[in-house]
Design a protein around this nucleic acid. Structure first.
Length: 122
DNA sequence: GGATTGACGGGAG
DNA sequence: ACTCCCGCCAATC
């Protein structure tokens, strides 16, 4: 088990105020779509807090009802892949929702992004 | 209060 | 594609 992130102490029973806002946004991500940490933060009314969004999700229990797997980084990659089995589970869950990864193991945000990224300036 | 850390993002080389 | 670097914010040590 990875040592608990220092900045994400999940004080059992008590969540840092504001995290629920991230969860609320994540819960709105439709099945079969993905959103980036930055988007979640922005949509939660906290632009620039991408990291906090990540911590909030990290603090979730494995039996959480929040669809944490639908949140990936802005590059279409699963940050968890470098952290162990959780990454595999995330990929598994996403594929189970119909998401196809590209050859490099990334999620084409162009296709599955919840709020699609604006096309690269021409 | 300074240094360190992290499920981040974006740019430069 | 890769790595390195910097900005960002909150919690810890």
């Amino acid at each position: 088990m990875p040592r608990q992130a220092r900045s994400t102490p999940p004080p059992m029973g008590r969540e840092p105020a504001g995290w629920s806002r991230f969860y609320a946004v994540v819960r709105r991500i439709p099945r079969g779509r993905v959103a980036t940490y930055g988007q979640v933060a922005a949509l939660a009314g906290r632009p620039g807090h991408a990291r906090q969004a990540g911590y909030a999700l990290h603090a979730l229990g494995e039996h959480s009802t929040v669809p944490w797997h639908r949140v990936i980084n802005a590059q279409g990659r699963l940050t968890l892949m470098r952290r162990g089995h959780a990454g595999l589970e995330q990929r598994f869950r996403l594929e189970r929702e119909g998401i196809e990864f590209d050859a490099r193991g990334r999620v084409p945000l162009r296709r599955y992004g919840w709020k699609r990224p604006r096309p690269r300036k021409r």
